[in-house]
Amino acid sequence: MNHKLEFVDVLAESHEYRPATDLKSFEYSHAAEITNVYPMTEHEHLYQLRIVDPEARSRFTFRPGQFVMLEVPGIGEAPFSISSSPSRHGDLDLCIRHVGTLTNFLARVGRGTRVGISGPFGTSFPVEKMYGQNILLIAGGLGIVPLRSPIMTVLENRSRYRKVDIIYGARSPAELLYTYEYEMWRKFDINLNIIVDHPDETWTGPSGLITTILDQRIATASEGFSGRTFAIVCGPPVMFKFVCQRLIDAGIPMQRIFVSLERRMHCGRGKCCRCNIGSTYTCLEGPVFDYWTVMNLKEAI
């Protein structure tokens, strides 16, 4: 009588690479090459990456608001919002602030460096649902990064939307990101308003809190504005709490207000639990949440 158990090869059960559902995809990463590094401020660089395999590159699809996990072998792996338009597939823009081991290492790499990319992960901004509507994109500080993908999507489909506003607040003019694109955004009939906390001698725009601009925008809105408007908000917790409260006060329904939240993720796949808010996985059920869901998250944001 043979009592030897037969070895089961779990990968034999999965036939092809199917993101999110098969066992093969868990530790799978695309080899990607850094094609360009563009310093935007003292602490943030824009990285352009390209998935090396052309077929995988064109097959790579994502939605605005989603993130990827970027890995440098031996150095670390972390989540980053995709900053580019979905129409560019596996040619990705990532804006990265140098704050930890991985990002400080990235500050030193040059063109041609190979990294690992897995994803895309998480929820996204429902930009199709917003067709025919006004959009308010509101960003504080680094919060502009996850917004750049929906901004690009809106630009590419500008005629499908009504009034589009970007309200962007930063600490100082030196910390503004994507400055080289403001002209283009405006040319696409986007009402761009920028405000800084601490102006320098070159600054000619307004200074103060981002809510000042928002209040003006709401005050000058036409009749029925709130019923035809979606909002996308991203920024530090204090900022978006105040911003979202004003949007709600202005009559925009909570389920039309979307925020992108940030937590430390180790896996991005709903397994390590490090990003949980209360018992909600930021990596699976977020990072994009509607505000009604945020109100129901059982932990201080």
């Binding site: 440098v72 072998p73 031996g74 290492f105 030193r108 790499v109 040059g110 041609g112 460096t113 190979r114």
Partner: peptide, 12 residues
């Protein structure tokens, strides 16, 4: 030591 050591293109 000869040439400068690097790790993934970054000088060590």
């Amino acid at each position: 030591m000869g040439k400068e050591k690097t790790y993934l293109g970054v000088p060590v």
